[in-house]
């Protein structure tokens, strides 16, 4: 048996206003995930309450993308936001606990967002 899931695409500017009501109604932040597609990045913000899964999706350009931070609403988002900054090179503005690219101690910058994707050396 599988739960049904729906992915709602929203605009980057709407993120905070969509997230705040969820916080008020007692939803929990499940995860934030970034996916690299050949032509864009997609961000998934997932929330859950009473086992009901809500997913907001934002599309971002491959390079020089930036996002508003939701740590003002969900403080727990700081781990995810530091992660996507370190792995995908997305600039998250206003992170409440910003590690400044030192969350993961890795040599390369944004290893998951390489333009030549297939030649990842230390996979």
């Amino acid at each position: 048996m599988f739960e049904s899931q729906e992915y709602i695409t929203i605009k980057k500017e709407e993120l905070l206003e969509k997230t705040a009501p969820l916080f008020k109604s007692g939803h929990r932040l499940v995860q934030i995930c970034c996916t690299k597609l050949p032509d864009k990045l997609i961000m998934d913000y997932s929330f859950d309450k009473d086992y009901k899964f809500i997913d907001y999706r934002i599309e971002l350009p491959l390079e020089g993308a930036s996002l508003p931070s939701i740590t003002g609403i969900y403080f727990a988002a700081f781990t995810y936001e530091n992660e996507i900054h370190d792995l995908f090179g997305i600039n998250v503005i206003g992170n409440a606990l910003d590690f400044g690219g030192k969350f993961y101690r890795i040599n390369e910058t944004a290893p998951f967002n390489k333009v030549v994707k297939k030649e990842v050396k230390n996979a």
Binding site: I106, P111, A123
Partner: peptide, 18 residues
């Protein structure tokens, strides 16, 4: 308390390309 992880990042997620 300020947590600090990332000492053993393995990059397993990228292995799906290989």
């Amino acid at each position: 308390a300020i947590p600090n992880v990332g000492f053993i990042h393995r990059g397993l997620e990228l292995l799906c390309e290989k």
